[in-house]
């Protein structure tokens, strides 16, 4: 099991790198979907021997949302907008990759020094979860298009979810469902907002939303 887990964690790192390094919006939407799928597999692998129906169902539900519904919603938004790539990001793609590699190094280094918590077997899990959160935050500030910012938000949410798993936090089903519902509604409302932004402005560059200031 350990080998599988480590493979998954490494794949998680790779999805993050692709997310930061790619300019094509459809590819990025797909990458976030893959990330959701990987995260859905994780709890199944972690609790392989003691798996009960409850976490399995929850994992299935969250995978369905993150790998199925969100990508579908975002893909529709991208198609409506008619924009295929982010041409001119705030931070260039090579610089972004370099920064991300730096973040990965720092989180791995810090990960060794964190107080041990939870029952997770893979040492990589906690630092990679934090890495994913940071990548999400980085995307939100370093990209102009609203779609990429929503993807950043989703990556951050994925990272937080992975972190909860790394700490073996067992949220009650109801709370877990509530969180999923909120994230779903969040992406839904953001999707509507993107549609409205593109209709109102003919673009979805959020840095040009700058009328309101002091």
């Amino acid at each position: 099991m350990q080998a599988w887990l480590d493979t998954l964690v490494v794949l998680l790192i790779l999805t993050n790198l692709r997310l930061v390094g790619s300019s094509r919006l459809f590819a990025c939407v797909r990458t976030v979907a893959v990330q959701g799928l990987l995260l859905g597999l994780l709890p199944v692998l972690v609790q392989w021997n003691t798996l009960t129906w409850r976490p399995a169902l929850l994992a299935a539900g969250s995978t369905f949302l993150k790998a199925g519904v969100f990508p579908w919603l975002l893909r529709r938004a991208v198609r409506d907008v008619g924009l295929r790539r982010e041409v001119d990001p705030v931070v260039g793609y090579s610089t972004s990759l370099l920064i991300t590699m730096g973040l990965l190094g720092v989180t791995l280094y810090l990960g060794q020094r964190l107080p041990p918590a939870g029952l997770f077997e893979s040492q990589l899990m906690t630092p990679v979860a934090i890495f994913t959160i940071l990548v999400g935050l980085f995307l939100i500030v370093a990209r102009r298009t609203a779609v990429m910012q929503v993807l950043g938000y989703l990556a951050m949410e994925n990272g937080i979810y992975a972190f909860g798993m790394a700490l073996a936090v067992e949220e009650p089903v109801l709370v877990e469902l509530g969180i999923l519902l909120d994230v779903f509604m969040g992406v839904f409302v953001m999707g509507i907002a993107i549609f409205n932004i593109s209709r109102e402005f003919d673009h979805i560059d959020t840095d040009r939303l700058s009328v309101l200031k002091d």
């Binding site: 409302v189 907002a193 939303l209 309101l212």
Partner: peptide, 12 residues
């Protein structure tokens, strides 16, 4: 557009 900008900032 102004209220949309405000709503987007708020949401994100």
């Amino acid at each position: 557009h102004r209220s949309l900008e405000a709503a987007w900032k708020y949401l994100l």
